[in-house]
C-alpha cells in the first residue's frame, strides 16, 4: 500500500480510471481549484474515487469529508494531511 504524497497527476489518473472524463473537460489543464461538478463529476464519481483512494493509498475519506471537499485541491490537502505529507 502506497503512503507517498498524492499528487494532482495521481488524482487525475485516479479520476479517469474511477469515473472517466467528461467531454470538453481537460483534466490535464489547471483544474486544482475547479469544482468537481464543473469537471463533470457527480457524487457517485467521487464516492468511487474515494473508495479507490482508500484501497490504493489507505486513506479513508469520511462522509463529512466528502460533504465539504468540492475541488481537487481540497481533496489533495485532506488526503495528504491524513498521510502526514501535508
Amino acid at each position: 500500500m502506497a503512503t507517498r504524497e498524492l499528487t494532482i497527476d495521481d488524482l487525475t489518473h485516479l479520476l479517469r480510471s474511477a469515473a472517466g472524463e467528461e467531454e470538453g473537460v481537460d483534466l490535464d489543464g489547471d483544474i486544482l481549484d475547479t469544482e468537481f461538478a464543473t469537471l463533470g463529476y457527480d457524487s457517485l464519481a467521487l464516492l468511487e474515487t474515494a473508495s479507490r483512494l482508500g484501497v490504493e493509498y489507505g486513506v479513508t475519506l469520511t462522509d463529512d469529508d466528502l460533504e465539504v471537499i468540492t475541488t481537487p485541491r481540497a481533496l489533495l490537502d485532506r488526503v495528504n494531511t491524513r498521510l502526514g505529507r501535508g
Binding site: R16, S17, A18, A19, G20, E21, E22, E23, G40, L44, A45, E48
Partner: peptide, 8 residues
C-alpha cells in the same frame, strides 16, 4: 460510449 460511462 462516453468516457464518463465506461467505468460504470
Amino acid at each position: 460510449v462516453p468516457s464518463r460511462l465506461l467505468p460504470q
